[in-house]
Amino acid sequence: MFKKFTPEEVTGQNQVKASVQRKIRQSIADEYPDLEPLLEDMLPKKAPLIVAKCQNHINLVVVNNVPLFFNVRDGPYMPTLRLLHQYPGIMKMFRVDRGAIKFVLAGANIMCPGLTSAGGALDEEVSADAPVAIMAEGKQHALAIGYTKMSAQDIKSINKGIGVDNMHYLNDGLWKTLHLD
């Protein structure tokens, strides 16, 4: 999704109204309850909260020029990888085997067998259409943020095709966008 993303792709940046800011904060808190106590520091009420609109209906939530979250249309907010690396416990996790790492880092979606093989792992509570952190065999940190196409149970039983859409991965355009001016 952010494979070729650059800041030039942003079609508009708007400081949102207080009511919208509250709504964004609330949906982030609902999705990631462990983050709630940090949201006052992360998305301060007083600092302007910017929503940057990008191609393909992607929105970035930006504070002090730093992209922190993104979503598609009015889907759930997902943290950027840099933010997730700081707070890895906030998202449910899947793990791909070592063989899948290079494909994920090339932007490929995550295929079921990469998650069900010996090096992979699934959190069985994850449903379809849910944000999930993609970890990797032998690595400590997440390499991608995904959005499930199937539930963990289905990934296991069907075991073919795309299980998780690759939304954002290490070294994609969003990763390279440390600041949005």
Binding site: H85, K102, L105, Q140, L170, N171
Partner: peptide
């Protein structure tokens, strides 16, 4: 390469 050091091998 900007990646977490453990991912340099895939960078």
């Amino acid at each position: 390469c900007s990646l977490p050091a453990e991912y340099c091998e895939f960078g």
